[in-house]
């Protein structure tokens, strides 16, 4: 989903071959998670079928990379619409952390121990990301690290908050009824 819009954005900047798109994608968005060629070519095929991009040149030779792609006016309009639409905040109730806490309480396992271990793991991750950001040469890399840092921090705040309210939550989970929210 996001990858297809990222490719549209890169093609709006300039016509490109598939290989070039992968390189540009990894450099700008990939960081720790480079995109696979397979996904690039699948996405390009889909975008071509949808009329959001088109093949402008086919060079002689073998391999899937002989095509050169360009964005179409429909593609530009689609990219515009996507950029203009705010994204849904993640539905946190589905999160692994929440499920683990409730499951631990339900089964009488020590939820506080789980939260403590999770806190250590999160803090370690933040320390590594902070060191990485302090070493990073450019604003773009630093801001990608920042994005992750703020999200891990949000989890940590929830962990602290949950730990402080564990007794009330335990009561509610055991009884199956909402406790008084004091």
């Amino acid at each position: 989903m996001t990858v297809s819009y990222a490719l549209l954005g890169l093609l709006e900047e300039a016509d490109r071959h598939g290989y070039d798109l992968k390189q540009s994608y990894d450099r700008r968005f990939g960081a720790a998670r480079p995109v696979r060629f397979g996904q690039i070519y699948r996405t390009l095929a889909q975008l071509t079928r949808d009329g959001r991009i088109e093949v402008t040149a086919v060079e002689s030779g073998a391999g899937p990379d002989r095509k050169r792609y360009a964005i179409t006016p429909e593609g530009v309009a689609d990219l515009d619409a996507w950029l203009g639409e705010p994204a849904e905040p993640e539905p946190m109730l589905q999160s692994v952390l929440f499920t683990k806490v409730v499951l631990a309480l339900l089964s009488g396992r020590p939820a506080a121990t789980f939260l403590d271990a999770q806190r250590v793991k999160h803090l370690d991750a933040m320390r590594e990301l902070t060191a990485e950001r302090r070493r990073s040469p450019g604003t773009q890399a630093a801001m990608l690290a920042d994005y992750r840092l703020f999200h891990i921090e949000a989890d940590l705040r929830w962990i602290d908050h949950a730990e402080a309210r564990l007794a009330a939550l335990a009561e509610e989970v055991r009884d199956g009824t909402p406790a008084d929210r004091g």
Partner: peptide, 14 residues
């Protein structure tokens, strides 16, 4: 009390 700030440290004590 800010995790972002504690992440600058070499070690964290709770």
């Amino acid at each position: 009390h800010e995790p972002r700030v504690s992440a600058y440290a070499d070690r964290t004590v709770l």
